[in-house]
Design a protein around this nucleic acid. Structure first.
Length: 417
RNA sequence: GGAGGGGUGCCCGAGUGGUUAAAAGGGGCGGGCUGUAAACCCGCUGGCUAUGCCUACGUUGGUUCGAAUCCAACCCCCUCCA
């Protein structure tokens, strides 16, 4: 392996962040010699980011830790136009207020990973709406449009695939890559940003920005992409049964976040430890050696480290505790999600299926009844298969709660009040 | 504006008058095996105050004992032409 001069590039390469780079040696040289500013663009269609963006976030953290300056670019301007790739015609366009709210949520996520401020390595968050909204069509076409050849744009995967599949591609969408390239130029002018990073699917867009910079302003810009992080099974990372794995605590509990990492597939453990934790590489190598059931120890380390970064040490420890109590000791962990139910209702007895819905373990009575019939429902760890079963105060344990389970992993405590 | 094709459940897609809450697959959930993994196997997968009722095949009307299926109008999408 080549030896790198800059800690920044070395760390990225060693830990598995690199997929492609426009000029790795030159970038390494530059990062070793001076402080650089790099940006990554994020969508702001949701009030939080999910693990799908975590690789990029970690990369910005590394950037900052190795003495450089991260820019978090929010796609406020592009979001406003609405993503035309959505098939759902009624897909709503976000208002300015939505975007502002979403940005606040995302900033909160980021503040766990990078520090914002005015210092030389402090991160800044910018919104491309600041410049995109003001663009005047004709001057923009004249100054920027002439640098884009349609022939070349048609050859980009994002476009080519759509055309080959004979799927529609609107002119609006076709313009996204131009706007994104322009973002890079603008960030270079405003913030002296010389590196854009992103997922491998962004390669084309990034390269466009690099070239636009060279043609218009004669500056040397760099591009760097990460591999698309899929699970070993090939599934795209970030979505599970209960939806996206959000990074914000108010959208996904620390326990669920911890569990997400705890349930990593064996084959992914080493790779994820390198990408999503800051453990030294030799320790990761040791953990990665573990085989069979022993690898569970590595998964716990992964869950703890990843949770600590995102939710803090104490939240991670609490989650580990809860998990240990629930799975290893099989007893009622007291900090499982709790739902209050009136004692008077319980006295008379409440249908189990209704409680399951109340506890949000099931979406409808029908679903709950099916779950019970299928043997997936438990009251205080005892399987109940009678769909008409009732739960009463007598079911409360010595702790004064009733533990409901849907499957082996989803538990809720019912507390009479 | 003209010609043609199409809109079905979370997704994808079959279904061209009746046992169709709608095939197959995917996804999801549950069970089994295990290690709270993967792979694999099995079951479930519209709602409800539940031997029944309601909602659902782009929308609205119509034909019919009966419509996702036939007819009409309208809306939307795609392809080609102008």
């Amino acid at each position: 392996m080549t030896t790198f001069k800059s800690e920044f590039v070395r760390t990225l390469v060693e830990r598995g962040f690199m997929h492609q780079c426009t000029d790795l040696d030159a970038l390494d040289e530059l990062a070793a010699r001076q402080q650089i500013t790099a940006y990554i663009g994020y969508d702001c269609t949701a009030p939080s980011l999910h693990v799908g963006s975590l690789v990029q976030i970690m990369m910005q953290r590394i950037l900052q830790k190795t003495g450089h300056r991260p820019i978090v670019l929010m796609g406020g301007g592009t979001t406003k136009v609405g993503d035309p790739s959505g098939k759902d015609a009624s897909r709503r366009m976000l208002t300015d207020d939505d975007i502002t709210d979403n940005m606040a949520g995302i900033r909160e996520v980021f503040s766990r990973f990078v520090s914002f401020g005015d210092g030389s390595t402090d991160a800044v968050m910018v919104n491309n709406d600041d410049w995109l909204s003001e663009l005047a069509y004709i001057p923009f076409l004249r100054d920027m449009g002439r640098h884009f050849s349609i022939n070349r744009m048609l050859s980009f995967d994002s476009v080519k695939l759509r055309l080959e599949r004979e799927q529609p591609l609107s002119f609006l969408e076709f313009n996204y890559m131009i706007l994104q390239a322009y973002d890079y130029l603008e960030l270079n002018r405003r913030h002296d940003c010389i590196l854009q990073m992103g997922g491998s699917d962004q390669w084309g867009n990034i390269v466009n920005g690099v070239e636009l910079g060279r043609r218009v302003d004669s500056v040397s810009l760099y591009g760097f992409t990460t591999p698309l992080i899929t699970l070993a099974s090939g599934a795209k990372m970030g979505k599970t049964a209960d939806g996206a794995i959000w990074l914000n605590q108010d959208m996904l509990s620390s326990y669920d976040y911890w569990q997400f990492w705890r349930n990593t597939e064996d084959a992914d453990v080493g790779r994820f430890l390198r990408l999503f934790t800051e453990l030294p590489l030799d320790e990761i190598a040791r953990l990665d050696e573990l085989e069979g059931a022993e690898i569970n120890a590595a998964k716990i380390v992964l869950a703890n480290e990843a949770s600590t970064l995102c939710h803090g040490r104490s939240a991670a420890e609490a989650a580990e505790n809860t998990a240990h109590q629930t799975f290893a000791e099989g007893r009622v962990a007291t900090d499982l999600p709790t739902v209050d139910v009136k004692s008077t209702d319980l006295q008379a007895g409440v249908n189990l299926y209704e409680l399951m819905v109340l506890a949000e373990l099931c979406k409808s009575n029908g679903e709950a009844r099916r779950l019970i019939k299928g043997g997936g429902a438990r009251v205080n760890d005892a399987q109940i298969s009678d769909e008409m079963a009732k739960v009463t105060l007598d079911d409360a344990t010595v702790e004064g709660v009733v533990k409901l389970s849907a499957g082996k992993k989803r538990h809720v405590l019912i507390k009479p009040v």
